[in-house]
């Protein structure tokens, strides 16, 4: 799969990444090379093979339903780019 400019732009939009206009071609070439590497997988016979999402066969552990986290808003917001009245501020959300 070879990616062109518009493919890269589409992917970058989905991933919310601003790319410099003059770098798009370069990314297209590099990503195409990486995909060529990845496409070596095509030769593997994976019929009847279960997908493996985790290295260990363990089951999810469950947590007891208890409130254990105190209010640490001040500490957590000390490093926030922009807050007011305890709220994180971002450019207007339009629905």
């Amino acid at each position: 799969m070879s990616l062109d400019r518009s493919d890269v732009e589409k992917i970058a939009h989905l991933a919310r990444l601003a790319l410099d206009e003059n770098q798009v071609e370069g990314y297209a070439a590099e990503l195409s090379n990486i995909l060529a590497l990845v496409e070596q997988l095509e030769v593997a016979d994976t019929d009847n093979i279960e997908p493996m999402a985790h290295p260990l066969h363990m089951a999810q552990r469950l947590r007891e339903d208890q409130v254990t986290e105190p209010d640490r808003r001040d500490q957590n917001q000390a490093i926030a780019p922009l807050v007011e009245n305890g709220l994180y501020l971002v450019p207007k959300v339009i629905e």
Binding site: A15, R16, L17, A18, Y27, I34
Partner: peptide
């Protein structure tokens, strides 16, 4: 994200997104 991440991180994010 475009300014905060370097080129290799962006490449991998894009490959993974794809």
């Amino acid at each position: 994200r475009g300014e905060g991440f370097g080129a290799e991180v962006k490449r991998r994010i894009m490959i993974g997104t794809y």
